[in-house]
Amino acid sequence: MIVAQQKPISEIAQMISDCKKVLFLGCAGCVTVCLSGGEKETDVLASAIRIKRTLENNPLEATTFTCTRQCDPEYIAGIDNLVKDVDAIVSLACGVGVQYLAERFMDKWVVPAMDTKFAGGSVVHGLWEEKCGLCGECILHRTGGICPIIRCSKSILNGPCGGSQYGKCEINKDIDCAWQLIYDRMKALGKLDKLMEIQPLKDWSKSRDGGPRKSIREDVMIDE
């Protein structure tokens, strides 16, 4: 999932300080799962900012709604009537959702309530960690299912580097050395020989270096 974290309330409030009527829009996708922008968080944020504004003698009319997904045009098409007479939309989705809203509601001030952090998963309830760097050409089959692109601090393809110590990465003793993990797992699987193969240079044009990317599946496209 995409993991996002809410910005400080004061920062979000600042973005809409001159607005009188605002829609706080949650997303029932990833940000609900990572407990930052779902229905509950949306209600709490709206309530907090409403109180703040009342205390500042600048009352705010805040409504709330949570879309199934903000990254799908069909789901934000359904909120046209909620958006009609607000001065701004505060989106609690990841950066993708914010942009879809801004594109659909051209004349509205759309602001992000979140800092979109990474693609990852949960370790325990309340803790999420980064797992994938979205490189565009996965090599997990060569690295024992452990991603060196994002979990090795230097994204080394033929690791470890000289800084790997007692299983920890040299940048921080709390971070596991990804290449130690890769080695241990490949050893356990009896596939250490695979690690002897030199990894070819990675084609970073398939990642962000190639500019914004698109993914297409012609067979599911609906012809107009």
């Binding site: 309330i9 004061s10 907090a48 900012i49």
Partner: peptide, 8 residues
């Protein structure tokens, strides 16, 4: 924490 942040 929220109450402190919003001034209540």
């Amino acid at each position: 924490k929220i109450l402190d942040e919003i001034g209540l």
